[in-house]
Amino acid sequence: MPIELQRIPGAPMAQAVHIRSHEFVADGSVEEGGADGGPSPHDLYDAALGACKALTVLWYARRKGLPVEDVKTVIERDASAERTGTYRLTARLQISGDLTDAQIAELETVAHKCPVHKLMTTVTTEINTSVERMA
Rank of each mutant, 00 (worst) to 15 (best):
V131N: 00
T121D: 02
L93C: 05
T109I: 09
P115A: 03
Q103L: 05
K72F: 06
T73E: 00
I127W: 02
V116Y: 01
M120F: 14
A111E: 00
T86W: 12
M120A: 04
T121F: 00
L107A: 07
T124K: 12
R77E: 10
V71A: 00
L119I: 12
L99K: 06
E106Q: 10
D78Y: 13
C114W: 01
I104P: 06
C114M: 00
T125Y: 02
D98Y: 06
T129G: 00
T84H: 14
T121S: 02
M134D: 09
T84M: 14
Q103N: 04
S130V: 09
R92H: 13
T129H: 00
N128I: 11
L107D: 03
A111T: 04
T84A: 15
D78K: 09
T124F: 03
A111D: 01
E132K: 02
L99T: 07
R133Y: 03
D70V: 01
M134Y: 11
V116F: 01
A79W: 12
E106F: 08
C114Y: 01
H117K: 04
A102G: 12
E108T: 09
M134L: 11
R77Q: 07
Q103W: 05
E108R: 03
E106A: 06
G85A: 13
D98P: 06
P115K: 03
T84E: 15
S130W: 02
T124V: 13
T125H: 08
I95W: 08
E108C: 03
L119P: 06
V131R: 01
A91Q: 05
V74M: 05
R88H: 15
P115G: 02
H112E: 09
L107V: 08
D101M: 09
A79R: 13
L119R: 13
I104R: 12
N128G: 05
V74S: 05
M120Y: 14
K118M: 01
Q103R: 08
L119T: 12
E82I: 08
